[in-house]
Design a protein around this nucleic acid. Structure first.
Lengths: 148, 148
DNA sequence: TCATGCGGTTTCGATTTGCAACCAGTTTGA
DNA sequence: TCAAACTGGTTGCAAATCGAAACCGCATGA
């Protein structure tokens, strides 16, 4: 994405350098929603075709998407999430949760995340440690490389 | 960020339109790390000053940062996260977790998140529902506005 | 066979970015 | 106390990026 990452030892900066772009994030969101074909992405997002081609190329190069032969014997191809790409699910969920909480007027309709097994809306999620604890901004800090 | 959001009913698109930009995300990360002053941001990020001024203005306008009088009787000002901004913590954590898992070579050093009370590194986090269930990509889908 | 769809690339104007210089007010320190 | 350095920006300009539209060869379907 950029020539030099802001801070090469910060995982946030690394991630942002790879997917910290409006279109990349929306392409990944679409991929989680089952969109696979170039024209599907293009129509759904309204993105310029040259930009879409460039973003797809970068995401494939980054190992987030991979190109597959289309199902059903078609000669066309499809873009699907790799395991590395699937691991971005929590990131997309974070974007969704914050948007739901802070980017809509009360009562304004928006799409919601559904648990496919129960059919129920997914409740408010929070990050927990493996032992069940919550993590919040005020109780966390970053230890940089080389710090004790 | 953009003139028309890609899909106005999608919370992901709304969020991306507000903070889906490399510099905005890194500014917010820095804010969580305690950076508050214009020149601090500028030096830490190596961002162009006019771009920084524009991003800070937008983030204040979006209600994510607010301008405060600097502590210690200085005439200068500081940018601090609002509650709305603090709520982006999970998003920054998502970026960090994915970066740690997928953007570093094995053994390559990077900064880590520390629990300020225990001093221990924060373990791998995952999203859980209030009743303790995990949520994964394959068991979730999006219900759009108007769908049953 | 012929129209339409697919997955791009090319071209070109508009927008955004990044760098450097500049500036007025603030603070520091000798 | 007075200059020097620092603050939080703004301005101007060149370069890079974006976006719309046209174009293209191949695939598919009627």
């Amino acid at each position: 994405m950029s020539a030099q990452p802001a801070d090469p030892t910060c995982p946030v900066a690394r991630t942002v350098d790879i997917v910290g772009d409006k279109w990349s994030l929306l392409i990944i969101r679409d991929a989680f929603d089952g969109i696979r074909r170039f024209n599907q992405f293009q129509r759904d997002l309204g993105i310029a075709r040259n930009i879409l081609a460039a973003r797809l190329r970068d995401l494939v190069h980054a190992g987030i998407l991979r190109v597959e032969n289309a199902t059903g014997g078609s000669a066309y191809q499809e873009y699907v999430l790799t395991d590395k790409g699937e691991d971005l699910f929590d990131l997309i969920v974070s974007l969704r949760q914050w948007g739901q909480a802070h980017a809509f007027a009360p009562g304004e309709p928006h799409s919601v995340l559904i648990d496919a097994t129960t059919g129920e809306p997914v409740p408010r999620l929070s990050y927990t440690t493996p032992d069940g604890g919550r993590i919040q901004a005020r109780q966390a800090r970053v230890r940089k490389v080389g710090e004790p």
